[in-house]
Amino acid sequence: MTGKPGDLNELRDIIRQAQLENTPYPDDPARRITVGKDGTIYRGDQAGDEPVSRVHHGTFAADRRLAADLWFARAKMPEGTVYVDEPDVRGWAYSITTELNERYTLFAFFDGREYRVKLVDPPLEQLVRENVIGAHDGHLYPDGTICLSGTRGVGQPSLEEAYAKSVLWALGMGFVRNGYAFPFAVEGR
């Protein structure tokens, strides 16, 4: 069928094979897909003088990080976890109840470098702003962002690590709220 419109099954098989082989522009003309000026999709190189455009056979613009995060959230985050996809806000909203029977709603997001977590509820950042709880003592910044790392600033390299550390943080914050030192940091001894 070189030079002729391809059927859907052939096109699908060509694209999938190229993706498996990581060959976005196959050398074999029979395994190429092109598109004519009128939008006709061809298998192989178009015969004749009609100008055609090569099709990149790689995966469509799938965000592998987001795909991995979707899997992780479904498999390992609390039931009721929601992915929020708004123009200025993208991330995972989830609620947990600690061993101290305190409920926290948190929001994990990727800032372009790392995963950060913001406290949504209870609104403890007000206590930090009023200096009732020191930012260093509670590992909570006045904007509600949780400090999850001393070496990389405030985040973690993966959603999994940010989620897990935020749950541990919530338990530690429960101790701070009850008048004790944060138990999961050397400076808390």
Results as ranks from 00 to 15, higher is better:
Thr81Lys: 03
Ala18Asp: 11
Arg129His: 06
Leu124Thr: 02
Gly6Gln: 11
Glu50Tyr: 02
His56Cys: 10
Val89Pro: 09
Ala61Asp: 15
Leu171Gln: 13
Asp49Leu: 03
Val55Ala: 12
Pro29Gly: 08
Thr145Gln: 14
Val154Thr: 15
Gln17Thr: 15
Thr81Gln: 10
Gly134Pro: 03
Gly39Leu: 13
Thr34Arg: 06
Arg90Ile: 05
Tyr115Ile: 06
Leu159His: 09
Leu100Tyr: 11
Arg64Tyr: 11
Leu127His: 04
Glu125Gly: 00
Arg189Asn: 04
Ile15Asp: 08
Pro183Gly: 05
Glu125Lys: 01
Gln19Met: 03
Ser95Ile: 00
Pro51Phe: 07
Gly44Val: 07
Asp45Pro: 00
Pro29Phe: 04
Leu127Ser: 07
Ala162Gln: 02
Gly39Pro: 13
Trp169Leu: 02
Leu159Trp: 10
Gly188Cys: 03
Arg103Val: 01
Tyr180Phe: 09
Gln156Arg: 15
Glu79Cys: 00
Trp71Val: 08
Gly6His: 13
Ser166Gln: 03
Pro123Asn: 06
Gln126Val: 09
Val132Ala: 09
His139Gln: 14
Val120Cys: 00
Tyr163Val: 07
Lys118Leu: 01
Gly153Pro: 10
Ile15Met: 13
Pro78Ser: 00
Leu70Ser: 14
Glu130Arg: 12
Tyr94Glu: 00
Asn22Pro: 02
Arg152Trp: 08
Arg32Thr: 05
Tyr94Leu: 00
Gln46Tyr: 03
Gly174Thr: 04
Arg189Pro: 04
Pro157Leu: 12
Ala93Ile: 05
Leu119Gln: 09
Tyr163Pro: 05
Leu8Asn: 11
Arg65Thr: 08
Ile96Arg: 01
Asp88Ala: 07
Ala93Gln: 08
Thr23Asp: 14
Arg113Gln: 13
Asp27Glu: 14
Gly6Pro: 13
Arg65Gly: 00
Asp28Met: 06
Asp63Arg: 13
Glu161Trp: 06
Pro24Thr: 14
Thr81Tyr: 04
Trp92His: 06
